[in-house]
Amino acid sequence: MSELGMFFAVFGMALCVILGGIGSAVGVGLAGQASAGVVTEDPGKFSKVLILQLLPSTQGIYGFLVAILAMARFGVLGGDPVTTTRDGLIVFAACLPAAITCLVSGIHQGRTAVASIGLVSKRPEQFTKSIIFPAMVETYAILGVLISILAVFTIKF
């Protein structure tokens, strides 16, 4: 077993959790500040803005999911351990799409959710439409996650 290979594999898994978590933390944090602002003025809008605040939280979950699958497949929680540095780098590369797209989309989804919270505060009847705008940003995190999951399941050493 290659220690360096295992290091790269675990580093890729860690990045999925760390970057996805940062994306969601920033996004949910921003949307939370905006939600608090709206609820200060109009407590009746709590349930609507809460849903918008939660939208950027999925990226952290996606990163966590990819990391768990990779750990189960490549010898951390089961499966075949990585035996060479080259194999470790392949696992690392497989984790990158989810890690990077979750970071960027989490932050941008948070900013879009803030804008939607502003929309709901002025036009509560447009709530359904206001969910669609931040939800669109989710697409790119899902694409990144799908590629990472496919790579994790199809890689053969």
Binding site: A36, G37, T40, V114, S121
Partner: peptide
């Protein structure tokens, strides 16, 4: 610019009036 997120949200709610 994100430092004003809370304040801007409150302003948005006040603009209704």
């Amino acid at each position: 610019d994100a430092a004003y997120t809370y304040a801007v949200a409150r302003v948005r709610a006040k603009e209704v009036f």
